[in-house]
């Protein structure tokens, strides 16, 4: 596990041909590690019949809604959380 709770991370903005579980709307956005879940089979190879090894660490990452949507119309404290695999995260500290 490369990251710990509270660390600032940025979601990689690369494009990826084929199945992956990183939502496009979060690519390039900066958030905070909220939970360190566990390691899970990599969905990018599982989707094509492989066993997903090596497993990839999975984190719950929290974002300020205003950082995700520049025109966000809700309240300033509103937050958005998503599970992101480690190989889609980079250090933002």
């Amino acid at each position: 596990m490369r990251y710990r709770t509270g660390q600032r991370v940025r979601v990689d903005s690369r494009t990826h041909q084929g199945h992956h579980r990183t939502p496009g709307y979060l690519k390039g956005k900066t958030g905070t590690i909220e939970r360190v879940h566990a390691s899970f089979p990599n969905p990018e190879t599982c989707a094509y019949g492989a066993d997903g090894s090596p497993k990839q660490p999975l984190y719950l990452v929290g974002f300020a809604q205003r950082d995700v949507w520049p025109g966000y119309s809700g309240r300033g404290a509103d937050r958005l959380y998503a599970d992101v695999f480690e190989h889609w995260l980079e250090d933002a500290e």
Binding site: T22, P23, F40
Partner: peptide
């Protein structure tokens, strides 16, 4: 408000 996107 905390929205949780269960992506995995």
């Amino acid at each position: 408000l905390r929205v949780v996107d269960s992506t995995a």
